[in-house]
Structure formats: C-alpha cells, structure tokens
Design a binder for these strands. Structure first.
Lengths: 206, 206
DNA sequence: TTGAAAAGTTGAGACTGTCTCGATATTTTC
DNA sequence: GAAAATATCGAGACAGTCTCAACTTTTCAA
C-alpha cells in the first residue's frame, strides 16, 4: 500500500537550511518588533537574499502561518481538554485567556487572525476555524449549563479575544485583560436580567 | 486691553486656500480608504506638491487632529447632555454607541485615538482627554445609581469603545456593535453576582 | 505704487519597504 | 561526472515617507 509515494519530494538540503533560518529570524524579529516587521530585514538577518525569502514564503501571511500553525492547533486542543473543567464557564474563561495570550505573541497579529478566519484562501484559515470550533464547544457547554446567554456565538468570542488583545497592545496588557473580563461577564446569563438586545449579524453570503 | 495682539498672524491667502483643500481631500480620502491612505496621493488630489502638505501637517497625526478636533469636542458635549437621561445606564449606552460610530469614521482611526490619549505630545491629546472626562461623568452617574460596577473606569470605557470599533472594521460593523454591547453588559452591577475579579491596571507613572 | 522681506511652494532626491524575474549557482540523480 | 532539477541571488520597478535648497507669491510700509 501507498507505493505511489504521493508527496515524497523532499526539500533540497540548502533550501531546508534557509527555510529554517528564515523561520528562526522571523520569529525573533516579529516577537521583538511586531508582525509588521520588514521582511527585507528578516532576510538580511537570516543571511539570504530577499528573493529567497519570497521564494519560501510568497506573502507575509504564509510566513505567519508557518510560525503559527502549530500554536493554533495546540490552542484548539487545549480547548478540548477544558471541556471537562468543573465549571463550564470557568473552562471558557481559562481558554479565552490562553487564546488572548496566544494572539499577543506578535504585536499586530490580531488583525491577521481576524481576517484569516473569513478568508478561505488564507493559509491560516483552517487553523482559525479549528480555534473557532474549539470556542464553540466551550460556549455550547456553558450555554447548556445556563451559564452564558443563548445568543452568544463563537465569532463573538473570537472577536472579543482578538479585540481585547488589540486593546492590550494599544495601551497596556492589563487593560486588555480587563476588557476580556468585562466582555466575558457580558456573556453571562446573570447579566440577562435587564440585558440589552444584541444587534443582529447580517448572515455572511455563503 | 489685549493691545499686544499676541497671536494675530494670519495665514497667507494662498496658504489658507491650500490648507483647506488639503483638509477636504484628506477627509474624502480617509473616509473612503482609511486613515492610512497615502499622504502623497492626498497632496496630488489637492493639487499641491507633497512638500506643501508636510509644511501644513508635519505628521499624519497633525492632519488627523485638524480633521477630528471638532468632532471630538462635540462628542464630549453630547456626553454632557446625556447626563440628564432618564436612566444613567441608558445614557452611558447611547453615548458609547455614538463614540463608537465616531471612531468608525475613518478605518484604522482607533489605534491613533488609543495612542493619543496616552501621548501628551499628541495634538489630539486634549480632545481625547475631554472625551475621557465625558465618559467618566456618565460612568460616575451610573455608578452612583448602582447600575455599573464600582471598579469600571473611564479608560475601560474608552478601550471598549475603540476595541469594538476595531473589531467592527476587521469583521463587520454589527460584530463591533455586539462586542460593545457585551462589554457594556459586563459593566453592569447585575453581572456582579458571580463576577470575575478584574486584573489591576499598573498605575501609569505620573 | 512699489520693492524688499516674509511666508509659502516646489519637486527632486535620499530612504525604506514590497515584490518579481532572468541569470547564476548548487544539489540530486542516474 | 554530467544533465536535470531545484534554489539562490540581487538588480530593478514601484510606491510611500519625509527633507530641503531654490524659487515664487503675498504682504506691507514707505
């Protein structure tokens, strides 16, 4: 079985070396200077021509995908584990905080993540969907337990996480966490007493 | 009195004309393409050399200040009016929505607004402070009425407004409004029953 | 009215960054 | 040990920000 060796093509040795170097330098540069850092400079730091960088990663997004893919999938897995948390709401909160920390890895990453989830052609799309699905499961459990409002959606949670991360970058990390906390409290059923009606989302054209 | 005529220097006629044209074109371009639109292109559209634009507005921020100053002050005034709303919380909500709509005028404006409030050298600083003060008054009234948690601060409100506007730009306007709504609900006292503790803000160095 | 002085404008040019592509170099494979 | 396949290189086409010395227009006092 599997004698056809469908995708056996290995990367050439020098190519693989450059690929790794680029990833390493990009991770360092993005962590220090944010996700908008010059690709040209990253290539320079990695000791390759910029054409080589573009050869491996045609877009900035492709580079971010290579850096983020695993992290995103790990986050989805964490979500699955938290489905067994004592309190459904606590599980949700713990996960949301982890997700926010994750977005904060590179300054400016939030915008990419928000766009990737809606852009099917994005290389981060699948990973974002997995994260969204993990959020939905946690949300569903909390909903069933009567701990969050029935009208809270996974995109609401996703938007809250990224928006709070954004706010944290703009002013200070604790400010971001406060925002996340307020938002999550706003999700709670206990707030529903005199709760405000929510604007409807226009259903995205399929 | 006032015989010294401290700042009587009027702008030269041609300068004034160019200044106005630049403002007009910038407003149109920012509204259509966002606050990051090319200044070079704005100068072109206004029929002046780019050096002229930089002569009038040394930075993009200076241009935004000229465009936003009045609007910001108007927003602060609206806040003062809403202090007489029947329900303190409703007044707060109404104002927060107006503030968010205001941030949404130019895509990408939120980041500038978030930074301006902390940067004393920003030309938008005073206007931001006025907006913050208006928010604080509405918040204080709602706090006194027992409608919002005692630990909600004006910066929380300001961050929520801008973060919700950001989210709205990233995905869709209604998503932004939903986020604002959840956040405001999270401010409410009714959510305090089982409320989460808030992370403390590290006091900004005076 | 007029002609300096003051004020304003111009646009080339120095940078930085994105992205492409033909020429060149290195590996791999047979 | 070459041919074939695969990568790399780096110049160059663009676009944007920002500066500045030369030039032009306006103002205003005599």
């Amino acid at each position: 079985m599997n004698a056809g060796t469908p995708p056996p093509r290995r990367m050439r040795a020098d190519a693989h070396r450059n690929y790794q170097r680029l990833l390493t330098e990009a991770a360092a540069a993005f962590a220090e200077h944010g996700a908008d850092f010059s690709l040209e400079a990253i290539a320079r730091r990695a000791g390759v021509a910029n054409g080589t960088l573009y050869g491996h990663f045609p877009t900035r997004r492709a580079l971010l995908e290579a850096l983020m893919g695993d992290r995103m999938r790990a986050l989805a897995a964490t979500g699955a584990e938290l489905l067994t948390a004592r309190s459904p709401f606590d599980g949700l909160v713990t996960w949301a905080r982890a997700a926010m920390a994750h977005t904060t890895i590179y300054r400016g990453l939030g915008a990419t993540l928000m766009q990737a989830v809606e852009d099917e052609s994005s290389e981060l799309h699948a990973a974002c969907k997995a994260v969204l699905a993990a959020g939905e499961k946690l949300l569903a459990r909390a909903r069933t337990a009567g701990e969050v409002r029935p009208d809270v959606t996974a995109p609401d949670l996703y938007a809250l996480i990224n928006a709070a991360a954004w706010a944290g970058e703009q002013s200070s990390p604790p400010q971001g966490e406060r925002l996340l906390t307020f938002g999550l409290n706003g999700f709670r059923t206990s707030a529903t007493d005199q709760a405000l009606p929510l604007p409807k989302l226009t259903p995205a054209p399929k």
